[in-house]
Simulated scan of single mutants.
Amino acid sequence: MKDLDNYILEHIDEEDPVLQELDRETHLKVLGARMLSGNLQGQVLTMLSKMIQPEKILEVGTFTGYSAICLAKGLTETGKLITIEVDDELEYLSARYFEKAGLAGKIEQRIGPALQIIPEIDETFDLVFLDANKREYIDYYNLIFEKVRSGGYIIADNTLWSNKVLQKPSPDDTQTKGIIAFNNTVKTDSRVEKVILPLRDGMTIIRKK
C-alpha cells in the first residue's frame, strides 16, 4: 500500500511550497499533526473547489489551515471562505499561512465552538467542509443544511474513521458513534445525493438537491 501511495503522489501535481512549509511546521509544533489534510487530500479538495467555483465556502475545523488554503484556491474572484476553529492557540499559525498563500483577504477566521458560531452566520454557501468534532457531525449537518444553496455541496472528512465504522463501537467511543450516526443520517436523507470516497480516512461528498 505504501508503494501505491508513493506512486499516486509521484503522478499528481507537486505540493504547493507554502503548503509544504505549513505541513512541516505543523508536524514540528502541533499535537495531532496527523489531522492535517496532506498533499493528496488537499489536491482533491482544490480540484473539487475549482470544479464547483464557489462564491462562499464554510469550513468547520480549521486546524492549522491546510485544507482552508486548498479550498480557497477554487473561490471566485470575489469569493470568501469562513473557517471555524475552537482552538484559539492555532489562530496565529493558520493566519500566517493564509497570508503567505496570498489568501488572507479571502479567508475569514472565526474562533470558538462551531455549534455557537454557525447559527450566527447569515450566509448562503456553495460548499461546506466538515472536519471538526466527530461527535457533533450530525449537529453541524443540521445547522448548516438550510445555509447551503440547492445544488451546493457538503464534504465531510473522516467518515470511515480508521475502518471503525465496520465494528460495533465500545460504549465510551463517542467519536465512532458520532461518525456512524452521521453516515446513517446522510444515507437516509432523501434531500441529498451522496458518495463516500475511500480516500485516506474516508471523505463523503454530499450534493443538496
Rank of each mutant, 00 (worst) to 15 (best):
I206M: 13
I52H: 07
L103F: 01
D173V: 09
L71V: 06
L75S: 08
D87G: 00
E15W: 02
E77W: 07
G112R: 02
L31R: 15
L197F: 03
S190G: 11
I84Y: 02
I82C: 10
D131A: 01
D189K: 04
N163M: 10
K106S: 12
L81T: 10
Y92K: 15
K168S: 14
K209Y: 12
E91H: 01
L90M: 02
L115G: 09
L45S: 06
L19S: 00
E14C: 00
G79W: 00
L36V: 07
P171D: 03
L115V: 15
T64L: 11
A68S: 15
S170R: 13
T26F: 04
E108F: 03
F182Y: 15
K209D: 13
N133Y: 05
A132D: 07
D126P: 02
V128S: 13
A33H: 12
K209Q: 07
T76M: 10
T188R: 07
D172I: 15
N142V: 05
D3A: 09
E85D: 15
T76V: 03
R191Q: 11
T46Y: 00
K194F: 10
P198M: 01
A68N: 05
L9A: 12
D5C: 09
K177E: 13
L103E: 02
K80D: 12
V44S: 02
Y141C: 02
A33I: 09
A72I: 06
H11D: 03
L130C: 11
T46E: 13
F125A: 12
E10W: 00
I52C: 03
T176Y: 11
L103D: 13
E108W: 01
H27I: 04
M1T: 09
D3P: 09
M47T: 15
L75Q: 03
I121R: 00
E21I: 00
T46C: 12
Y137S: 11
T83L: 05
